[in-house]
Amino acid sequence: MTSGLWETVLRGVWVTVQLLVFSALLGGVVAFVVGIARIHRRRSVRFLAGCYTEVFRGTSALVMIFWVYFVLPPAFGWQLVPMWAGTLALGLTYGAYGTEIVRGALNAVEPAQGEGGIALGFTPWQRMRLILLPQAVPEMIPSFGNLLIELLKGTALVSVMGMGDLAFSGNLVRLALQESAEIYSYILVIYFVIAFLLTRLMRGLEKRLKAGVA
């Protein structure tokens, strides 16, 4: 492989990392907002949040990406930059998986903790922010770590729409070299290294958060 081709691959790595960070941020916001809504006092809020989760978990991420690229622009008259279209589709889909993690961890907090907050006259928002979340968040980290790996693998899907991520750069190099075993092996190894680094990062984060609670 020539240095020019390696440059293509490196640019692909950069796009993949950007997409991963943006969609993880969007997905995280979605997971917390909808996840907290799923244990709201009002039935209607819980129902709507449940519908969101089921619809976005129910469809395939690739179908969602196609939808955002091809149906949204003519339907609403605006066109998204590929990076934002990819971020939107991935963030909304993987965020829906995250809502289950948030809901599960919040439900696992001892009920007496919330009752203690009521006894002290905390508002619901104070209870959430000061009592429930600090105890629930460290428990979410391992599951979020797994979801982050799934998201990393999901970012490869945007290459189907011609966005120049790592998987797409692999296709370009294959066309240039007329040879596939070598380049796809490299691409797989690069993905594996990124996944490995993410696992390490999440493990460190878990340690720090757990130390904060105990």
Binding site: T155, V160, G170, R174, Y184, L188
Partner: peptide
């Protein structure tokens, strides 16, 4: 571990383009 942590999409390309070469 390697197969689980790498994208299915790239694995598909790998098998689809490399197996005929072999």
């Amino acid at each position: 571990e390697f197969v689980r942590d790498t994208p299915l999409l790239v694995q598909l390309f790998f098998l689809f383009y490399v197996l005929p070469e072999w």
